[in-house]
Structure formats: C-alpha cells, structure tokens
Design a protein around this nucleic acid. Structure first.
Lengths: 193, 193
DNA sequence: GTCTAATAATGACTGTGGTCATTATTAAAA
DNA sequence: TTTTAATAATGACCACAGTCATTATTAGAC
C-alpha cells in the first residue's frame, strides 16, 4: 500500500531531521516546533509518529539493538569468549559514532526500560542468553552458572562501561576499558578451576 | 545562624512532603503546585531549594549514597568479599524500602550522572576503590586487576541488578539475584588460580 | 467515477515545569 | 534603634511538550 510506504518515509524523515538538529544544537535546544518546521509538517504530525520527543532517541537506541541480531549473525566464531568480544566491540562502535548524543540516548534507553514497556534491554539480554545456551549445548562452553545470570552480568557490564566512560569524559579508549572489564567478568563466568 | 537552620528545615520539609505525595499519587501525578500548596509556600520557593522537580529524587538517591560511608564504617569485616556483601546488602535494603519510587529514583540517578555534575555514582565508585586498595595493602586481598576497574565492575553490577530486577518485576528476591551475580563477579575478581 | 469508511494531518489550546523582577525578611553595622 | 546589605520568598509570567476536535486524504466498494 502506498500509504504505508509514505508513513515509513515520513517517520524516517522526522527521525533523521531530529537527530541532525540534536547533533547540531543539542537535544534541549531543539524544540518540537523547530523539528516540525524543518520537516514542513504540523506539530501534531510529529506526535503521531513519536508520541514523546524522547522517543526519537529511543528509536535510535532501538535501531542499535535491532543491529544486535545482524551483528551476532556476522560473528559466527565458535569460541564464545571471542564471539562475545566481537559482538560488544561492534556495538560500542555504533554507539560511539553518535558522539554527544550518546549520553542522552543512553539515559533515555535506561529510563524507558524502567518506565514503560520498552523490552529493549530485556531483548538484548535474551539474545545473549540464547547464544550462551547454544554454546553450552554444543559443548563449546562450560560454566557452573545460570545462562540468565551470565547474560545479565554481561549486559550490566556493557551499559556500565558506557555510563562510566561517558561520565568520566575519559580520554582513555572506550573499547580498551571495556576490554579490561570484560576480562574480569569472563574470568568469573568461565569454568577454569 | 538562625536562617541556616530554617533553610535546612524547609528543604527537609519540601523533600519529605514531596516524597510522601509521590508515593501516594505517583511522581507524574504530583505537580509542583500541589507540593507547594501542601507545604504552604510559593512556587518560586520550591525552586530555590530544588532547581528541578527531579532533584527531589536525586536528593533521595544522594542521601542513600551518603549512607555508603556509614555503612562501610559499620562493617569492619576484614574479609573483603564478606565486607562487600554486607555493604551491598545494606544498600539494597535501603533502596527497596522506597518501593515504586525506586525506579524513578534509579533512572534519575543515572540520568543526572550522565548529564550534569552529580558525582554521585563516581563517588560511590571511588569509595569502593579505596576499600579495595586498603584490603590489598593490608594483604587481605590479592588480585591481578586494577582496583579502579574492579570497583567499576562492582558498581555496574549493583546498578544492573537494580535495573534488571525493576524491569522484570520479578518475584524473585532482589538480594538473592544480587547474590548470584556477585558470586560470578567475585570469582572474576579474586585471585584463585 | 462516486461514495464511504478508515486513517492521517492540522494547529489552536492546555497543563506544567521553570524564570525573574519585585517585595519581604534577616543579620550585622552604625 | 536605625540603617543597610545580603539573602529569601513571592507569584505573574513564559516556553514548550503534548492533546484533541476538526479537516483533509486515501483505499477500497459499488
């Protein structure tokens, strides 16, 4: 149907325009009115596509999480540790590309996870749980811990790294810090005694 | 000075009244006007004490973090693992006491950490770093990892547990889940090979 | 092509967070 | 006690996110 196509296009247009403006002027300095006039639409229209202004950022976050599946497909490494490292590495890359918007997206992702539906983070955890179980079933990985909790710890560490890095404004490489912390976690996860 | 005492009292009054109202009606359903009329003050006065409505929640979060030092003093256990468990356990207790407000406080804590100053989480991490270093210097604890990163992983896991638990609305006991994940992390941290 | 039902766009309007110039209060100086 | 300078309280006011009754557009039925 033509209508559906147009809708997708318009949503995308609003999304891209918003992001562009956010990057240029900062989230707080961009009013919905500005977005709307930049798109050449009425204010109400914006809200038929994104019920809240913040939801534009969530859309950004979501599209990242959508990527998780692709990224996982991409890295068919059998060694779980290596595979996880590759996956997280790709995710961090995508996140960092959005520079300053990262912080805002990050807090909106967490906030929405805590408020409304937004299964976002939960889905992420589920996907990780799956590949951990898969590795366990294939005999490529052993652990005395529950895949659920392992996945939870991994996700927690991922977000923690992003948050801590953002706060610190550290010059240190994000991926490097993640690597260091992943090492600690991995030692805890794996069966090496 | 008399003035200073009154200021503290008023701030506390605004704080307590707000929290009470939030618990009764939910954060979003309590307008600043309502708080203000419940306190018998003018709107502007509210904002001389809390520059944003959300800052009331941060005050709640902060006062928790302030507790960290007391809690640490309280548990002078020499065995680091045990000591950390006791500390986190106390923190979780305090947090959970605020029930539904927990989620909102949590996301505001993270959000503010990412936005403004709010060294909150950073301070928490620093305090943990200190006691880890202390234990290392006393020879009570050995690890091949950097205290900074260990503390970071611990803090990450603490918040992660809270977030995941809040999202899941799990009936499972928060402390139990934390315990399971702490076990994983601790195995990663400690020198046992 | 016309009619109709469903869906989308519109923008005046509202509620609420937050500001700021003005007024009131206090602590200390004269 | 009076004066003065600093600080706090006030509430009319503003900006902006989000709503909703109304209008315009589209897809399909006939």
């Amino acid at each position: 149907m033509l209508r559906d196509k147009r809708k997708k296009e318009l949503k995308q247009k609003i999304f891209l325009t918003s992001i562009e403006l956010f990057k240029e002027y900062g989230y707080d300095n961009v009013t919905v009115d500005k977005i709307v006039s930049a798109c050449g639409i009425a204010k109400g229209t914006f809200f038929t596509y994104f019920s809240k202004k913040e939801h534009v950022l969530l859309h950004l976050g979501n599209s990242q999480i959508e990527l998780v599946k692709d990224i996982i497909q991409k890295h068919q490494e059998t060694h779980l540790e290596k595979r996880l490292q590759l996956i997280f590495n790709d995710l961090l890359t995508v996140y960092v590309e959005h520079g300053d918007l990262l912080k805002r997206t990050l807090s909106e992702t967490i906030r929405s996870a805590l408020k409304e539906e937004s299964t976002n983070i939960v889905r992420f955890k589920e996907v990780l749980t799956e590949i951990i179980e898969e590795s366990m079933n294939n005999g490529n990985f052993e652990s005395r811990f529950d895949p659920q909790h392992i996945a939870s710890v991994l996700v927690g560490n991922y977000f923690n790294t992003l948050v801590m890095w953002s706060i610190a404004e550290s010059e240190e490489d994000l991926k490097h810090i993640f690597q260091l912390q992943f090492e600690i976690i991995w030692k805890g996860i794996s069966n090496n005694r």
